[in-house]
Write a protein that binds this DNA or RNA. Structure first.
Lengths: 120, 120
DNA sequence: ATCGACTCTCGCGTCGATGTGAAGCTACAG
DNA sequence: CTGTAGCTTCACATCGACGCGAGAGTCGAT
């Protein structure tokens, strides 16, 4: 499919998709015209990319992670014992982040639920 | 206390603290010298500010929320029925964000836990 | 052949919470 | 009095994931 369709189906802007290619997160093939041709798998990739981006990972890190999810996972510990460390770090950071968010959510919930002072 | 002490005790840079004042999140009094004088309560405020910032709220929103936490909560629904909406929105956004982060964490955990293929 | 919708590359603009000096004033120790 | 550590304002720099517009080529249907 071309970039417009992927954009519609993923809900991600074309600009962003081109950016992901630039960052080597996606590797669409090119038609003779120069048009990008994306596969169905790329749709899954895009979803994972968004998920990890939302989790605060950078494109560079994501670029290293993505390959570990397509064809078996041999590429992971095989090529990168240090990547495993980084991954663990990210995992912990995310966990901490979740805890923080829960505090914030609780805080807001408390404010919202605070009863309006009844006059009298 | 002066800005340096607040910085040390809160773990937040002086630059950031000045920025918070500029955004009306903090309202330190001024000494004749021009030096800022912060109260003990400001330390709590700073912690809440960081929490809400980490939760993705902007300084403008935080500026509206903070007053609701110091002197009773009468200022909340009293002055701002619409603030309540915004607050609810943020709350939901945070909840959604937590869900996303948990997906991401699970994803990473799965990758990390993936057994290295035993040769043979 | 042509028209509208789509796509291409290139490159500057954006946003928000800071970092980073620069130049000068203040506070306190010796 | 002097040193030095801390404080002041001002203003430009940063970073990452995009937005946006220009100018030009492409696709598919009529």
């Amino acid at each position: 499919m071309r970039i417009g369709e992927l954009s519609r189906r993923s809900g991600v802007s074309s600009r962003a998709l081109r950016y992901y290619e630039e960052q080597r997160l996606l590797r669409p093939v090119r038609r003779p015209s120069g048009y990008r041709e994306f596969s169905e798998d790329d749709l899954d990739s895009v979803r994972r990319i968004r998920l990890l981006l939302a989790a605060g990972l950078g494109t560079a890190m994501i670029a290293e992670i993505l390959p570990c999810m397509v064809e078996g996972n041999e590429g992971l510990a095989a090529g990168c014992p240090e990547l495993l460390d980084a991954l663990g770090g990210e995992h912990d950071r995310i966990a901490a982040s979740i805890a923080e968010l829960e505090s914030a959510r609780t805080l807001l919930a408390r404010i919202i639920a605070t009863p309006v002072p009844t006059p009298g």
